[in-house]
Every structure is written in structure tokens, then in C-alpha cells.
């Protein structure tokens, strides 16, 4: 690039160039904006519907912005979905808390996600770097367990959990997580495996020369280094545990999560169906609300997550 003889002239020129760049990118922007609107429409629809009063729902002029916004849908949904704990005097504190679907959702989501973040790393490291008998066979097993639809194995799985005495408790998700399995556990093992494979081997060699054991190398060098993979696994595990309604519906018959409670809201056909639908959508908003907030706070980690972990190689 030739240097401009008059630097002060660069201003208007770069401005014009930028304008030109914008014009050239205009089709891209139009296309992206159109798609963005398609993506946001359901979310905006939920937001607007949740606050609509009965008159607004039938009012065609208040399609997006409710004219008389109300919180009654939300408060009704909070009641129907048992979001809050209810305490009876005859029971202890824990039983009251377990009656809160929000509490059960949190108990199902966070411990399992935290545990998977660690245990899947152990298995992933073994597959990436260590030697053990039957490695190839076990790798095939890992792939098979990734592609098995949980619906095909749920019946014996319920018996396993019943035999272990963990049915009807979040331990149904925590216990498999302790072994590096559980909800999408094999996918997380694969993510860690790919990440560890990409790290240079010199890192470990240096530690081994210093006399460190494999355990020390893993816990003090490799696991701390896997931070991007850990963030990815934790975030995705959290999201998938939170959104799981099928398995929670099967494992929990005496307790419920926000997801199962939302499914249970039944909207019959009839006069009240419109008003009840608004309640159900308010319930859906309560269900996805925590995730939406977490996403807004951590969206950088989501959008950059897979790029950094090297899941794709």
C-alpha cells in the first residue's frame, strides 16, 4: 500500500471506502437480518404472549405489544408448575424443597454438569493419551453409546436405578455422571479426547522427565489446561440436563422438574383454551428464562466454544 502524501486526507477516504464496503455487504446484512428475525420471532412471541391479558389475545391490533399487560399468566404458571417450595408441618425441610420443581431442576442440572465436567475429562484423557487393554473395542463402545437413542434402553435403565434405590431422585443423573456416562456423556468424552489429542506431547514429556506420575500430570498439567473444553462441556451439559424432559419424566414419578411440569399443563379445546395457552407460554418462559439469562451472560463461550475445543478434528 502506498502511503498517502497528506495523512489528513485519509479520513474522508477511509470513510468512503467503509461506505462502499457497507454497500457491498448490504445483501449479506439483509439476508442475515431476515434470518435473525425468523429466529427471534418465536422468542418475541413467547415474551409478548406471556404478558397478554385475555382481551389482548383476541385483539388483533395488539399482536406484538400487549395493550394491557398482565402478570397473572406468569403468577398462575408459577402456581401450576409448582415453581416454589411448599412446606408442610409434618415434613422436614428437604421434602418441602423437593416439592419445588425449580429446585429439582437445579438439582438435576448443576451437580450432574459439574461432575460430568470432571469425569468425562478423565475418560477423554485415557482415550487420547494413555494405553490400556481393549482400547479399540472400548472406543467402538464409546461411539455406540453416543448413537444409542436413550428411548431404546430406558426400560432396563429404570430397573437399574430402582435396584440401586436412586429412582425418583436427581441421583438418576448424578450417578451415571460420576462414571463419565450419563446424559450425552459419551459426546463429552469425545470432546475431551479431541482436545487432549491436540495438545502438544512435549507438555507431558517435560513433566515426566521431572519425575511426575501420570496422575500428577493429569491433575496438575492437563486438566487445568483443558479450560476451554471444560467450559464447553459444562455449558452444554447444563443446557441439555435442563432441557431434558423425556428421561426426567420416566425417572421421576413422585417429583418433577420445570420441564415435566410444563409438559403437564394441559390445554383442552374450548372457551378457556386461549387463556390457558397464554399460561402455558408463560410457563415456557419460566422454563427457558434461566437458560436465556445464562446464555446472555456467557454467549461468548457458546459461540466460541467449539472453535476452541477442537471437537471437529
Amino acid at each position: 500500500m502506498r502511503k498517502l502524501p497528506f495523512p489528513q486526507l485519509a479520513g474522508p477516504f477511509t470513510f468512503m471506502r467503509r461506505r462502499l464496503g457497507f454497500m457491498r455487504r448490504l445483501p449479506l446484512y439483509i439476508l442475515l437480518t431476515a434470518f435473525a428475525l425468523l429466529y427471534l420471532e418465536p422468542v418475541l412471541y413467547m415474551l409478548s404472549m406471556a404478558f397478554k391479558s385475555t382481551t389482548d389475545i383476541t385483539n388483533a391490533t395488539a399482536k406484538w405489544i400487549p395493550q394491557s399487560p398482565t402478570l397473572s399468566n406468569l403468577s398462575y404458571a408459577i402456581d401450576t408448575m409448582d415453581v416454589m417450595p411448599t412446606f408442610l408441618e409434618t415434613e422436614n425441610w428437604w421434602e418441602g424443597m423437593m416439592r419445588s420443581n425449580l429446585f429439582v431442576s437445579i438439582l438435576t442440572t448443576f451437580p450432574a454438569a459439574l461432575i460430568q465436567m470432571f469425569t468425562c475429562a478423565v475418560a477423554g484423557y485415557a482415550f487420547a493419551r494413555l494405553k490400556f487393554p481393549l482400547k479399540r473395542t472400548l472406543f467402538v463402545c464409546l461411539m455406540v453409546s453416543y448413537i444409542i437413542p436413550p428411548q431404546t434402553v430406558f426400560i432396563p435403565l429404570i430397573w437399574v436405578f430402582r435396584a440401586l434405590g436412586v429412582i425418583n431422585s436427581p441421583l438418576c443423573f448424578i450417578l451415571p455422571a460420576l462414571f463419565g456416562c450419563g446424559l450425552k456423556g459419551s459426546l463429552f468424552v469425545i470432546i475431551y479426547m479431541q482436545f487432549f489429542k491436540k495438545l502438544p506431547e512435549q507438555l507431558e514429556e517435560a513433566a515426566y522427565i521431572d519425575g511426575a506420575s501420570t496422575y500428577k500430570v493429569f491433575f496438575q498439567v492437563m486438566y487445568p489446561l483443558a479450560k476451554p473444553a471444560r467450559i464447553t462441556v459444562f455449558l452444554f451439559s447444563m443446557v441439555w440436563h435442563w432441557n431434558e424432559t423425556y428421561l426426567t419424566g420416566l425417572f421421576y414419578s413422585k417429583i418433577g422438574t420445570l420441564g415435566t411440569a410444563l409438559t403437564a399443563i394441559n390445554v383442552p379445546n374450548g372457551v378457556y383454551s386461549v387463556a390457558l395457552m397464554a399460561v402455558k407460554i408463560a410457563g415456557a418462559l419460566i422454563f427457558v428464562g434461566p437458560l436465556l439469562i445464562i446464555y446472555l451472560l456467557t454467549q461468548r463461550h457458546f459461540t466460541e466454544s467449539i472453535e476452541r475445543t477442537g471437537i471437529v478434528e
Partner: peptide, 15 residues
């Protein structure tokens, strides 16, 4: 390192 995963696989997937 791999033993916990194998136990989990046998109990919660293979069986």
C-alpha cells in the same frame, strides 16, 4: 483412568 467409564458403560449402557 478408564475403569470408571467402563463400569459406567457396562451398568448404564451395555446392560
Amino acid at each position: 483412568f478408564i475403569a470408571p467409564w467402563v463400569i459406567g458403560f457396562l451398568a448404564f449402557t451395555a446392560f
